[in-house]
Structures are given as C-alpha cells and as structure tokens.
C-alpha cells in the first residue's frame, strides 16, 4: 500500500507539468495582446513594448514557460492585470469558498445517491425503485443553472415562511445570494449536488445489483447473516468500489458546475472570480484560477485512487 501511494504521488508529477504547460499555453492561444490590454487601448506603442519587455513576453516560449514554471513552484502566480494584486491573494479565501461549496455538494450527492441506489437495488423493479430512478433521471437531465434559478424562485423569493413558525424572522426560507450562513448555503449546495446525486444513485444501483448476484452474498446468507448485514456489510462495501471512481470523476464536473452555481447565486468564489477575470481579459488571474482548480482535481483523484485501492483488496499491492 505504501509503495502504491508513493507511486501514485510520483505519477501526479507529469500530470502537474502537463497542466502547467496547458495553462501556460492558454495565454498565447487566447486572442488579444495582454500587454496592449494592460496599457489600455489608446496607449502609445512604446509603452506597450515596455510592458511587454517587463512581462518577458518577448522571450522565446520555452524561456517564458520556464520562468512561469519556476514562479509557480515558488508559489508566485503573477499579478492580476486589473487590480495589480497578487493572483494568490486574489484567489485566497475564494478558493476556500469554492472548496466548501464543492465539499458540501459532494457530501450531499454521495449521501442521497447511495441511499437512493441501495434502496432501489434491494427492491429491483418495485414502485420505489422505478420512482427513485425516475427522479434520478430528472436530476440528471436538469441543467443546474436552471435548477438554481427555480430554487431561488421558489424558496428564496416565492415561498414565504409562514408566520406561525417561530425563531425565523425572515420573510423567505433561504437567501438567494451570498455565502456563509446556513440560509445562504442550502440552495447552492442542492443546485450543485443534484446532478451528482443522480449519477451516484444510478451507479450505486447497478453496482449493487451486480454484487447481490455474487456467490459470496449467497455465502453470507447461508451463514445465517441478517439481511441488513448482508446488504450493508457484504454487498455495499464491494458495490462501493466502482462508485468511488465515479465520485472522483464527478468532481471535475462539479468544479465546472461551481462556476455556474456561483454566478447564479452571486457567490464570491473561484468560479465567479474566473468568469470576471475572463471578461476583463485578466490573463494571469485566469491562468492562476485554472491552475489551482486543476491541481484540486488532481488531488481529489489522488485521494479517490487511494480509497479505491483500500477498498479493492484484490489488486495486488506489489
């Protein structure tokens, strides 16, 4: 196991380099001259040239990349064009907001998805199964910005809290924007978590159905184990193995979804930051956010792989 973890960590190095190359190239693929933008559209040519020289934009690509990489490794992601502040500072606490949002959403997805998947699988083709899978299909097909808007419409604007409920003095159940309080967190988390919950539910169901037919489940029953034990101890642990992988992949989509969700709910997270940065052509900031998001994704998948390895004893550790 130890060897595996070390090997898996070493494997992230080329991935990391690949990510930096792509992120670095982004700057040069996007139309528009950063120096020109920084200087302003009517700036004289030599001023633009000055800025270009200062940013090292005249160096050959490999040199530029090398400078970029060594800066990144030192934690320097450059300065925002618009604000002039450190990109790391700009990202700063917004990073944690997005991580929080993503984390709660994943927890919600896994929680709802597992329960729905197990319940469906245990009573395959029952009314319960069909209903749950229908709901999952809905959750899967609904674009999350739409779901977000609807939730705002219903629970933050439309439906007032009845006056006979004590202790809540707000006029609405939840708040339509911002981040921090419970009332602000609920709707975005539901918005972002629904799609994942649906996918996990469907995956868990099919995985459980497969596992329930296995010989060792029959062994467990023949041993006299209670049905509850058979399902949760013997079946679920095995059924989780493919689900874990899905959760990891899910995380990528989740980061994408966070951009939309944060925009819809006006949350000051990384998603919103990146949208604003793109609109302002603030390249260093875009680069920085994309890089951080990619690394987050790599990190989550590292954790997922290690969990997978832990669950799946059949893989030889050597």
């Amino acid at each position: 196991m130890f060897v595996f973890i070390i090997r898996r960590i070493l494997q992230t190095i080329p991935v990391f380099l690949g990510v930096t190359i792509i992120v670095f190239s982004l700057m040069h693929l996007i139309p528009g001259d950063p120096a020109q933008i920084m200087a302003g559209e009517s700036a004289p040519a030599e001023q633009v040239e000055n800025i270009r020289e200062r940013l090292g934009l005249n160096d050959p690509y490999p040199v530029q990349y090398w400078n970029y990489l060594s800066n990144v490794l030192q934690g320097d992601l450059g300065n925002s064009i618009r604000s002039g502040r450190d990109v790391t500072t700009e990202i700063g606490h917004r990073f944690w907001i997005t991580v929080e949002l993503a984390f709660y959403s994943i927890v919600l997805s896994v929680f709802l998805g597992l329960i729905a998947g197990i319940v469906s699988a245990v009573k395959q083709y029952s009314f319960r199964d069909v209903t749950l899978m229908l709901i999952a299909l809905f959750g899967l097909s609904m674009p999350n910005f739409w779901l977000g808007l609807m939730l705002i419409q219903w629970f933050a604007i439309g439906l007032d809290v009845p006056s006979w409920i004590p202790f809540i003095d707000n006029t609405a159940w939840f708040k339509p924007s911002g981040w921090g309080s419970f009332q602000q967190i609920v709707l975005p988390v539901i918005t972002l978590g629904t799609g994942g919950a649906a996918i996990i539910a469907r995956m868990t169901r099919s995985s459980m159905l497969e596992v329930i037919d296995q010989d060792y489940i029959r062994t467990a029953r023949a041993k006299g184990a209670k049905e509850r034990v058979v399902i949760y101890r013997h079946a679920l642990k095995n059924a989780l193995i493919p689900v874990v992988t899905v959760v990891g992949l899910q995380f990528g989509g989740l980061l994408g979804g966070a951009v939309l969700t944060e925009t819809v709910f006006a949350i000051n997270g990384m998603g919103k930051l990146v949208i604003d940065a793109i609109q302002a052509r603030d390249f260093p900031l875009v680069q920085g956010t994309v890089l951080v998001a990619s690394l987050l994704f790599v990190l989550v998948n590292l954790i997922v792989d290690i969990t997978y390895r832990y669950l799946n004893k059949r893989i030889d550790f050597n």
């Binding site: 060897v3 070390i6 090997r7 070493l10 030889d316 050597n318």
Partner: peptide, 9 residues
C-alpha cells in the same frame, strides 16, 4: 510489473 516505477520485477 511492480515497485514504485512499475518496472518488471
């Protein structure tokens, strides 16, 4: 294959 670098062991 095995080990940290996946060599033939």
């Amino acid at each position: 294959k095995g080990g940290i670098f996946g060599r033939t062991i």
